[in-house]
């Protein structure tokens, strides 16, 4: 059994996205239900979320952008920069809280209080660019976590694995010239899915060339193709890179019952990728795996998907 941290705060439910949006508070309720039903809750270490200090948001985002987002919320605007980004007055505060929760989990892992962590936070982050909200994302949670690992704990090699069905354009762009953060993403091919980046030939730039790796998946290809790509691309790349900490952009929207995509993955496949990530965590990163929720919109499937995910983190 591993000591697994759990960043959960009911305030994450207060980021409201209106009536016609897939990224809704019920997603977290569904995940929580799965964890409860799996009788996992009492074995998790609850990590309280406190708002992140602006310093850490600024480690990734421009100050002017941060202020723009804050002001939009204060003025009561219900969308920010695109109709995709529906929000409410509290969204800025909740986004800060989400980052704060993640950083608390990172700290607890680095100080050895827990072995790994699951952060089911809202809003998600991997589409957020340095100065642009995109695809339901405002602050790039995982990128801020990586900067925090580098600047606060001196971690030299951070490995990011993004298995949300959409490419994490924000995360890729933030680190594309940085050889200390390896960004790997597997996602539905950008000619068929949002956001239109993450093509096979995007491999980083300048000093970061070779530290970005994308495995686009064609529609309908399913578990076998997914597993083949992970074995072919991710496993050898991380074997060479040897990350000292692994951060996962965890998205469950590649599931075949999720209407947001078409790559046709089974529930079992999500367990498989998490087990594979845990193996790499043990091999290279002293088990330090921090999983941060991105997408996943099937309320019917999220309970089992998140239950399995957490059980694997816990080593049960």
């Amino acid at each position: 059994m591993r000591r697994t941290g759990f960043v959960y705060d009911e305030r994450f439910l207060r980021h409201k996205t209106g009536p016609y949006h897939p990224e809704i508070p019920d997603r977290l309720v569904a995940g929580y239900k799965g964890i409860q039903e799996g009788a996992l809750l009492e074995h998790l270490t609850l990590i309280p979320a406190v708002p992140a200090r602006q310093k850490w948001i600024e480690s990734v985002h421009h100050v002017a952008y941060i202020l723009r987002f804050e002001e939009a919320c204060l003025y009561g605007m219900t969308e920010f920069e695109s109709p995709d980004n529906q929000m409410c007055q509290e969204s800025y505060d909740i986004a800060l809280l989400a980052v704060g929760g993640i950083l608390a989990a990172v700290k607890a892992v680095m100080e050895g209080e827990i072995d790994n962590a699951f952060c089911p936070i809202r809003p998600p982050g991997h589409h957020a660019e340095i100065a642009k909200a995109m695809g339901f994302c405002y602050f790039n949670n995982i990128a801020i976590a990586a900067r925090y690992l580098q600047q606060e704990f001196g971690v030299e090699r951070v490995g990011i694995i993004d298995f949300d069905v959409h490419h994490g354009n924000g995360t890729q762009h933030i680190f594309e010239e940085d050889s200390s953060v390896f960004y790997y993403s597997i996602h539905e091919h950008p000619s068929f899915a949002f956001p239109g980046t993450g093509r096979e030939f995007e491999k980083g730039a300048n000093a970061g060339f070779g530290y970005t790796l994308n495995s686009p998946m064609l529609p309908g290809q399913g578990d076998d193709e997914f597993k083949m790509l992970i074995e072919r691309d991710l496993i050898p790349a991380f074997g060479t890179f040897q990350p000292q900490v692994i951060l996962a952009s965890t998205g469950f929207d590649g599931h075949r019952d999720d209407e947001m995509s078409g790559i046709n993955l089974s529930t079992e496949c999500f367990s498989w990728i998490m087990e594979r990530i845990m193996q790499m965590g043990d091999q290279y990163a002293k088990g330090r795996v921090i999983s941060i929720l991105e997408g996943g919109y099937s309320l019917a499937r999220l309970p089992e998907l998140i239950r399995n995910h957490v059980a694997i983190l816990m080593g049960r």
């Binding site: 695109s82 995709d84 589409h127 695809g135 339901f136 949002f194 529609p219 309908g220 078409g262």
Partner: peptide, 23 residues
């Protein structure tokens, strides 16, 4: 220009349109 096409896809199907298999 959105990440959110599930609803509109369903709507088009309800209107009688066939969505082509991406492959």
């Amino acid at each position: 220009l959105t990440n959110n096409v599930a609803r509109v896809k369903k709507k088009l199907q309800d209107m009688g349109y066939t969505l082509l298999d991406p492959m």
